[in-house]
Design a protein around this nucleic acid. Structure first.
Lengths: 197, 197
DNA sequence: ACTGAAAGCGAACGATGGTCGCTTTTCGAC
DNA sequence: GTCGAAAAGCGACCATCGTTCGCTTTCAGT
């Protein structure tokens, strides 16, 4: 990490990513709220105030996690959404990658979601905004499907919310009826049947 | 408030109640988490450490609110439950007083419920225990109704949870279809029809 | 080589929740 | 009536927290 040379915004982002990755195990072990900035800085091999060069406040670290994950997912979804395929096929793919992402960081998501309840309202709003961006993405795909005629005319925002929030039990639930893939299939079967044109 | 004379447990409880009552407006105005123990003590006209004689920690103050309210409600419900009436009539009365209590402290309940999300898991568990006590009360009433034959044999715990949690939208919801009394009536109509024997 | 700017750091800050030991008040025993 | 034990109350104090400040170190361009 050179000192006298300015970091581009992209490098900053990489650095933030790296810092978070180095620290994540403390959060998993003793929780976010119970970990002090001193500990975080130490675990990252940084001076405490250097940490503040990358995260404006402590809450920003938690917010960063969600923003990072959610914008990754949104990006990925957008890439899929641009393919030349019927909207329902694309939507299916989007949800598949969605639960794959959730599953890959399952315990981290669980812990962080729980801890995020204790953030200030303002920070929670930041996270919600990113969530909405993802929902809007899904919604746009449903709207496309409606225009294509593969979906009937439904309230697309409501449907998107229903679909996305219906994914949680598949990964985080406590009563499983099969593998996540099977549960996803069953859920999507119901959903698509519900809105098919 | 005498100094050299010991307080009975009951007097302590009264005192706690009084302290909370004197402080409640700060919580409503600037929130619980944002109010320091110094401010609380000052508003109560107490020394800071005296406050700690009545509440072991800051979180205890919030926990106290729920414990107090919920045990009041549980008591009241128990009094109604002992009357010599068919179980369904008693259950109806219980739920009526329930939403009356919620309504009477509506904004306080709202604020405090929101703030309680930020408590430590341990404190949240304390609150949940009291909630369960109330639910168990309702459940017992449903069990009685089953024995009396006015209800059919249902999973009484599940039904109780459904009933109690179904009250929230009546008081705290954002989409009202009538007065709380009307909404309660509609909800209970559905519920009783659902479990009638 | 020199300089300006960026990156990094530890000490220090203000505020917080919580504790300690002292003072004040009261009641009951003598 | 007084004296002492015990309780209630208190403000100073403590450790710790998140956050900021000013200094040092390092490097790129001249």
């Amino acid at each position: 990490m050179p000192k006298g040379i300015p970091l581009t915004e992209e490098e900053q982002a990489k650095r933030r990513h790296g810092i978070f990755h180095q620290v994540v195990n403390i959060f998993l072990k003793k929780g976010f709220q119970e970990t002090s900035m001193r500990e975080i800085a130490e675990a990252a091999g940084l001076g405490k105030s250097t940490l503040y060069d990358y995260f404006k406040t402590k809450e920003d670290i938690l917010v960063y996690f969600f923003e990072d994950q959610l914008s990754d997912m949104t990006e990925e979804a957008q890439r899929i959404a641009m393919q030349n395929l019927p909207a329902d096929k694309r939507l299916r793919q989007v949800m598949e990658t969605y639960i794959e992402n959730l599953q890959a960081n399952k315990s981290l998501f669980l812990k962080m979601s729980f801890e995020s309840q204790r953030l200030k309202a303002e920070s929670q709003k930041q996270i919600q905004d990113k969530r909405h961006a993802y929902q809007d993405m899904v919604r746009a795909l449903i709207d496309e499907g409606i225009r294509e005629g593969v979906f009937r005319k439904v309230n697309s925002l409501l449907a998107a919310r229903m679909l996305v929030s219906g994914m949680a039990p598949i990964v985080f639930g406590s009563r499983f009826t099969g593998t996540p893939q099977e549960m996803l299939k069953d859920t999507l079967d119901i959903f698509f049947r519900g809105i098919e044109g």
